[in-house]
């Protein structure tokens, strides 16, 4: 059996006050060694609080977090040795340049001056920051700042890397670059916990995803299985010259069609079987079909389906 690097058990966090906020309402999950594990959910779902507790920064109301078998709540000092953290904010030390940021981070983790220098230079090389050695954090682009933060977070060889919305606010190019780095880190054996509200990010990067909403985990599985759980394998977006109610009911009546949803300028239908695409299109042509696109199921559709059900409850 694979080693569990993170175990979260029955985590609850209630912020007391006049109107208590139930940020986390009983979250449990395990993360295995070498995995990229995603916490996917909208802002305010409880992802950041969960990560805050695991990274020893938030005191839970109840529950336990074990980081590499060390209790993060009762022994934060030892737990912190085993983890690195990157947040969506640029928290680089602005009084120091890029190299010094890495150097002093190592010093905080007990490295001697000589060891810290060697490690900082190694990281600059590794993350291709050698031309930014003397740069001030404030002058770095968002993507570069995140790259430096990643380098800093793994400088002390953590077993577990927390990435809290690491690509929030980054342009697509920088996001792509960061994903590549995260993949490399995974190949190196780093276990990653990623919180994100970008469905695509979770889909591309994560081995397993926990869908979080209102302080609870709705489902944990591989992105593949989550998408399969929708039941439909393919979606079709159809655009008609004119969409009439009559046409809609005709489409709904087709054997191949599971569900029909009218969107602003098109009709989205889910098919039971991807082999029936041609048949459906053929039928739709007679109704004045203008344009068609085939949509693979995404985590977004999974999320909408799951939270939609939750909201109706």
């Amino acid at each position: 059996m694979k080693e569990k690097v993170l175990q979260v058990v029955d985590l609850v966090k209630t912020y007391t006050g006049l109107r208590p906020v139930h940020a986390v309402r009983g979250i449990s999950f395990d993360v295995m060694k070498g995995e990229i594990f995603g916490l996917l959910g909208p802002n305010g779902a409880g992802k950041t609080t969960t990560v805050g507790i695991a990274t020893t920064r938030v005191v839970p109301t109840s529950g336990t977090v074990l980081v590499d078998s060390v209790n993060a709540i009762s022994d934060p000092q030892n737990a912190k040795m085993r983890m690195g953290v990157v947040t969506q904010f640029n928290t680089l030390d602005r009084s120091l340049n890029v190299r010094e940021n890495l150097f002093y981070h190592c010093r905080y983790f007990g490295y001697s001056s000589k060891e810290a220098k060697a490690r900082a230079d190694e990281l600059l090389e590794l993350f291709q920051l050698t031309d930014k050695v003397k740069a001030k954090p404030i002058d770095l682009s968002g993507g570069l700042a995140q790259r430096v933060q990643l380098a800093r977070a793994i400088a002390h060889y953590p077993k577990l890397l927390f990435l809290d919305e690491p690509t929030a606010g980054l342009d697509p190019q920088s996001r792509l670059a960061l994903w590549e780095v995260v993949k490399v880190l995974q190949e190196q054996g780093v276990t990653v916990i990623l919180t994100t509200h970008y469905m695509e990010e979770a889909d591309v990067l994560c081995d397993r995803v926990a869908i979080v909403d209102y302080g609870k985990i709705l489902k944990v599985d591989t992105p593949e299985n989550l998408k399969k759980s929708l039941g439909a394998s393919t979606f079709l977006d159809l655009k008609f010259v004119e969409t009439t109610a009559d046409d809609l009911s005709k489409i709904e009546a087709m054997d191949e069609v599971m569900e029909v949803e009218q969107l602003t300028d098109r009709v989205r239908i889910s098919l039971k079987d991807s082999n029936s695409v041609a048949i459906v299109i053929q039928k739709a042509v007679t109704m004045g079909l203008k344009d068609v696109s085939i949509i693979e199921p995404t985590l977004e559709s999974v999320f909408i389906k799951l939270t939609g059900r939750e909201l109706r409850d």
Partner: peptide, 28 residues
């Protein structure tokens, strides 16, 4: 393994004295 990112082939002591960290913070 020039890419020493994880603990591959490297053992890191999980005991860091608070004194060393304090010294590091002061050095900064």
């Amino acid at each position: 393994p020039s890419l020493r990112v994880a603990l591959n082939g490297k053992t890191l002591s999980y005991k860091v004295s608070s004194g060393r960290t304090f010294y590091g913070l002061m050095a900064r």
